[in-house]
């Protein structure tokens, strides 16, 4: 079986769920080896990687790999590709992940496919494009295929293996150090799951009416253990922070359950959530186009329906 590199996404030494998903997917393509870039590698991280089938983990430990955006990660991966000739490289479809994939593609003369939602055993990627209206199958025909894969595309399935740690040291080039991270600002520690990875997302839009209106959205989200999202109308109005925007110019999410409240459903928004497994829509306008996507919809005032739903869930808990 051939080796497949899976870049681990992690924060504070914790492996993100998307990495378990990518390892699960990689097992259908070959033998997954995880790649850990940056400081913080620990026993808990090793346990997660092993649990989901990584036979090896290449550890490039050091602040130099994350104190400069993207470029050092691409250098570490290019080095691993040239030394180990894997049959594919899998990276999470985050902003950093896609840029890393792009730079890596140039370095190793290989084709790259971004935002895959599936990869078959013969390495044909499935993408959902144009706001989910079109499904495309494509493949890389040059070099070592590089895929970035959207979170929530593959259900993670454990397959315990013995994980072997291989330390790697790749010198970071002067070029890659040209941009330097001098500070990290945490905008809001809300304790909710990551928007891109959350199994449930509760979103608010124009119908929420004001920043204060998001209190009912957050209350429902917290009852469900969900992440909070917002439409462009809401973030542009300054009612909710920009990083929570779901849509064409924001995040693309694909949760098990998406609850859209007061969102009419212009293509701008649909492009970011159309592939959600189950979609619930609450809107007082029965003509709102988002109802076309709804598995369940309530025509009504979100300020009545949403708090009632929150209370009902608490009652049933």
């Amino acid at each position: 079986m051939s080796e497949v590199l899976v870049v681990a996404e992690h924060a504070d030494g914790v492996v993100k769920k998307v990495t378990s998903e990518l390892l699960t997917l990689a097992r259908t393509l070959g033998e997954p080896s995880a790649v850990w870039i940056g400081p913080g590698y620990c026993d808990a991280a090793a346990a997660t990687l092993g649990e989901f089938g990584a036979g090896k983990v290449y550890v490039a430990d050091g602040a130099q790999y994350i104190d400069h955006p993207v470029a050092p990660r691409a250098e570490v991966l290019a080095n691993l590709v040239s030394e180990h000739s894997p049959s594919a490289v899998l990276i999470a479809s985050s902003a950093d992940g896609k840029e890393t994939a792009g730079r890596l593609a140039i370095k190793i003369n290989s084709g790259v496919i971004t935002d895959a939602i599936g990869i078959s055993a013969d390495r044909i990627a499935t993408q959902s494009v144009f706001g989910g209206s079109t499904v495309v199958h494509s493949k890389v025909i040059k070099g070592t295929p590089i895929f970035t894969v959207r979170p929530n595309s593959t259900p993670p399935v454990p397959a315990s293996t013995t994980l072997t740690r291989v330390d790697v040291t790749v010198p970071v080039s002067e070029l890659a150090m040209k941009a330097k991270v001098t500070g990290r600002t945490v905008a809001q520690k809300d304790g909710r799951p990551d928007l891109a990875e959350a199994a449930i997302v509760v979103s608010g839009g124009r119908g929420v009416g004001a920043a204060e209106g998001f209190a009912v959205i957050e209350a429902l989200a917290d009852t469900l253990g969900a992440a909070v999202g917002a439409s462009r109308a809401a973030t542009d109005a300054g009612w909710y922070p920009h990083q929570y925007q779901v849509g064409q110019t924001g995040k693309t999410v694909s949760p098990q359950l998406y609850l859209a409240n007061g969102i009419s459903g212009a293509i701008q928004h649909r492009a970011g959530m159309q592939t959600s497994k189950t979609i619930v829509v609450v809107n007082k306008d029965s003509e709102a186009p988002l109802f076309e996507l709804a598995d369940f919809g309530v025509v009504g005032d979100l300020f009545k329906v949403v708090p009632q739903l929150t209370e009902e869930i608490k009652k049933r808990a």
Binding site: A11, P69, S94, A95, D96, A179, K180, V181, T182, G183, R184, T185, V186, A187, Q188, D194, L195, A196, H242, Q243
Partner: peptide
């Protein structure tokens, strides 16, 4: 812009 907020990059 990052998932958690932002990085200052120079």
């Amino acid at each position: 812009v990052t998932d958690y907020g932002f990085e200052t990059v120079v």
